[in-house]
Every structure is written in C-alpha cells, then in structure tokens.
C-alpha cells in the first residue's frame, strides 16, 4: 500500500512480514509513510499492529522483506538511531523503582537534544513519585514525556490510549500534537499510532492503515478514505432489495436488504455525482441517499463485510 509522498518518506516497507513457524503474524506488506504524517494503525487485537511497529523498530526481526526508517534499514536500528526515534507502548516495561524526575535525569545524557522544560507540569506528572506508584494514565504520560523531551523525528505509539479516561486521553493527545507540530510538514514529527479509539484518531490522524488478521488491507490519507467511503441507502418501488443486493458490484460491501430498502457501503466513490451513479447502476431505485461516513462507521462496515466473507469462505 502506498501513501502519497511529499518528501523522502519516514518509513518505507517492502514486502515486510513476520512468521513464527507456521503462524503468520504479519503477511508481507508494502507501506510508505511520508514525513510529517500522522498514521493511524487500525485493526482488531491480534491484527498485526504491534508486530508491524516492532518490525519497524528492530525489536523483532522480519521473516520477509525489508524496511527503511528515516533512511536507515530497520534491521540496523540500535543505539544512536534511537536519538531520532521515540517509542511508547502500553506493554513497555519501565524502570519502576525510579521517580519520574529520576527517569528524566537518567535519560537526558543519552540524547544530543533534550528539552523537558514545562513538560511534566504540562502533563501534570508528579516528579517525585515512583513510576511503580503511578496510575496507568500517568505511566503512559511519563513514557510520552520521556520521548517528547528529545524531539524525535519519528514517534511510534502502540495502543497508548488503552485504559485511559477521556480527560487524560485528550490531555495526552494535546501535548503530543503541541510538541510535535511544525508548520513545515517536512520538519514535523512523523507519528505512527495504533489504537482502537477511532473517534479520537479521526480528529488528528492524517493517514490511516487498516490491518486484519495479519494483513495490511489498505493504507492511505485520511481525507481520501473519508471521501471514497459512503453509506448508501436505496429505496425501491417493490420488495426487490434482497435480489439487487446480490448483484452489487465489487467495492460495495456490508449490504443489508429489508423489503424495498437496501443499505450498503460503497468503498470506491470517485465521482462527484455519486447518487446519480447509483441511480444509473440500479435503475429500479426510487430514492437514493449517499452520505459521508466517519471512521468508526467505515471500520464497523469493513469488519462486518470481512466476517461475512469469512463465513462465506468457511
């Protein structure tokens, strides 16, 4: 899957995949993430989001393909490379015995640039409290503070919002965006973030990649995705909806027919007069309504369609 590129990409993966024995954790996939993009990795638990991030960070080694991260081969990432790359994960172990300020003091000398001025106050973190005594939200904010302080060019966040209450989540995102934003996208921090929180992701992600059962189904700019996905409701004169639903072309998914009403999601909208096109496709239609969808609706429709396909194949 290829995203539109403005400059040299921050991440470029070719046929990158991971297998353990006969189990495929991530099928070989292509992915290009432009610099300055905020890529939302969407998918169920076990879809391969964490595996993809770990492959990009050289935490695990690929079974197939290769990737370059900030121009460096992913398999060579270690030591100094991580002065440019930050990583926060819900599962990341922390030095529990340290206080928040001890952690920041310990890490400071490892980086050429370090700016934590006001960061702990901004995230409302208690400097003298040990990490083992922090709540889940505070731990995630501590981890975020420890990567924002060195101004990474690339930031990978693996399920950072899991278990956070809405207030903390908002605070987390706000600080993240404030500290990584730049007017010139080429100088902004590239962010890859995996999450289930679709509403939140829709508000700030610029790109989206969707994984299912270890396969990367698509990756593209958020605008493009939202534009091309429409929820279509068609009303016929007679009870023919179920007959018509079986004849829908490829790209029209998650069809539900009830009497004279047919509802489906069109994933390939690329014309301005969409309703007119539907009327042309379905001559018996009395009324056609084509409405934009939010990310959550698209995600649910895709999942419904995937489950249906799986049942069909079974």
């Amino acid at each position: 899957m290829t995203l539109l590129m403005s400059t040299a990409p921050a991440i470029e993966a070719q046929q990158l995949g991971k297998r353990i024995g006969k189990t495929t954790l991530l099928a070989p996939c292509d992915l290009v993430v432009p610099r300055g993009a905020i890529l939302a990795l969407i998918g169920h638990n076990g879809a391969g989001k964490s595996t993809l991030i770990k492959l990009l960070l050289n935490i695990v080694q690929p079974s197939d393909g290769h990737a370059s991260v900030l121009g460096m081969p992913s398999t060579s990432l270690h030591g100094k490379a991580f002065t440019r790359i930050g990583y926060v994960s819900e599962n990341q172990e922390m030095p529990e015995w340290m206080t928040v300020s001890q952690l920041m003091s310990h890490l400071r000398p490892f980086y050429p640039h370090w700016n934590d001025a006001g960061l702990l106050e901004e995230l409302e973190l208690p400097p003298e409290r040990k990490i083992e005594h922090l709540s889940r939200g505070m731990r995630m904010k501590t981890a975020l503070a420890s990567v924002l302080a060195f101004g990474p060019e690339l930031l990978l966040l693996d399920e950072p919002f899991t278990g956070l209450d809405p207030a903390v989540r908002t605070e987390f995102i706000q600080t993240l965006l404030d500290r990584t934003h730049a007017d010139d996208p080429a100088h902004a921090t590239t962010i890859v973030i995996s999450s289930h929180d679709l509403e939140e992701m829709e508000t700030f992600a610029t790109h989206l990649a969707f994984l299912r059962n270890g396969e990367l189904l698509f990756a593209e700019p958020m605008d493009s995705l939202l534009n091309r996905c429409r929820e279509v409701t068609v009303t016929f004169r007679d009870d023919v909806a179920s007959n018509v639903s079986a004849k829908l072309p490829e790209g029209c998914v998650a069809a539900e027919a009830s009497g004279a009403m047919l509802r489906f999601v069109d994933l390939r909208v690329n014309i301005e007069d969409h309703e007119g096109a539907i009327r042309a496709l379905l001559p018996g239609a009395v009324h056609v309504q084509s409405e934009p969808m939010n990310l959550r609706a698209i995600f649910l429709a895709l999942n419904r369609n995937n489950r249906a396909e799986e049942r069909h194949h079974a």
Partner: peptide, 19 residues
Amino acid sequence: HQDRLVGETQFWLTRPYDW
C-alpha cells in the same frame, strides 16, 4: 535483568543504548 536481553517489551530496547 535490569536491562534484560530476552523479550520485546524492555524499556531500553528503543533507547540509544549502545550494546
């Protein structure tokens, strides 16, 4: 084991530690 080598969740893995 403070900075253990076995596993994928250690804090130091994505820090600029030279081996």
